[in-house]
Design a protein around this nucleic acid. Structure first.
Length: 256
DNA sequence: ATGCCACAGCAACTGTGA
């Protein structure tokens, strides 16, 4: 079973690139971030024509997440628990073949300090609470998406420029480490030693050509799921195609 | 020190992103 995550930066602008990649990678499940569309505006047919069931959780203009699955999805829930006043569409869950899939678009958090950063840290605490709940159920699960966290210095081409940024400052990395300390496995670091491996390159200043990237899209696996992890790959070549997203897909192969 | 680039909403530009 292949599960993928892809921040597409707008479904309307990215539909051809998404369809091309789905045909090529053919993931069994894919979580998408930044669909930037309301649910009614999402172009369902091109996705469904490829054999995918589709669940969206969108909002007007920005944010928005979705889950695609070739197998039926059960118990779909929208929104991250823990704050009924949170109206940003950043989280969705569904169960596929007994595996709980959590798709997330974690807040950027800049500028620091400020309300956006406070929201990011509070959101990460809620995510930790949700992971703790899921661990207690002993149901296999994974949390995949755009975490907007550079976990360590080796996850950025130029870590020194990110020192005070919401994606990398110590308080942010500590919050991510609290997630892994629960017993969740970062799938990429568990399966590869490759360095200069990134999932995002800015559109500006030739960042892709210089490989001036950052690794901010992650798969975190619970212990039962990590036991079934075979490989984790980043489809970096997608970044060099026509009209690319600034992120590229990351995917895991699981023995499910 | 700032913009660089891109997308959505909307019809000139702003908000947002990382």
């Amino acid at each position: 079973m292949i599960v993928a995550s892809f921040n597409i930066n707008g479904i309307k602008a990215r539909l051809p690139a998404l369809v091309d990649w789905l045909k090529e990678a053919s993931p069994d499940v894919a979580v998408l971030q930044e669909i930037k569309s309301v649910d009614e505006g999402f172009p369902r047919e091109p996705i469904e024509d490829l054999g995918y069931n589709l669940e969206t959780h969108g909002q007007k203009g920005f944010n928005g997440v979705a889950i695609l699955s070739k197998s039926p999805m059960e118990d779909v829930t929208r929104g991250l628990p823990g704050d009924d006043t949170d109206e940003q569409a950043r989280y969705i869950e569904a169960t596929v073949n007994g595996l709980r899939i959590c798709g997330l678009y974690l807040p950027n958090g800049n500028p620091v300090p400020g309300p956006k950063y406070d929201y990011k840290l509070a959101w990460m605490q809620r995510l930790q609470n949700r992971a703790t709940q899921l661990l207690a159920t002993e149901q296999p699960f994974l949390m995949a998406g755009d975490y907007n966290i550079i976990p360590q210095a080796e996850d950025a081409a130029r870590p020194e420029v990110w020192t005070d940024d919401a994606l990398y400052r110590l308080e942010s990395r500590n919050a991510y480490r609290r997630l892994t300390n629960l017993g969740l496995t970062d799938a990429l670091r568990a399966t590869t030693r490759a360095d200069k491996t990134y999932t995002f390159w800015d559109y500006q200043a030739g960042a892709r050509q210089k490989n001036n990237g950052i690794r901010i899209d992650h798969f975190l696996l619970c212990p039962q799921t990590a036991d079934r992890l075979q490989s984790c790959e980043i489809d970096a070549h997608v970044r060099d195609r026509e009209k690319p997203s600034d992120h590229v897909p990351i995917k895991v192969t699981l023995d499910f």
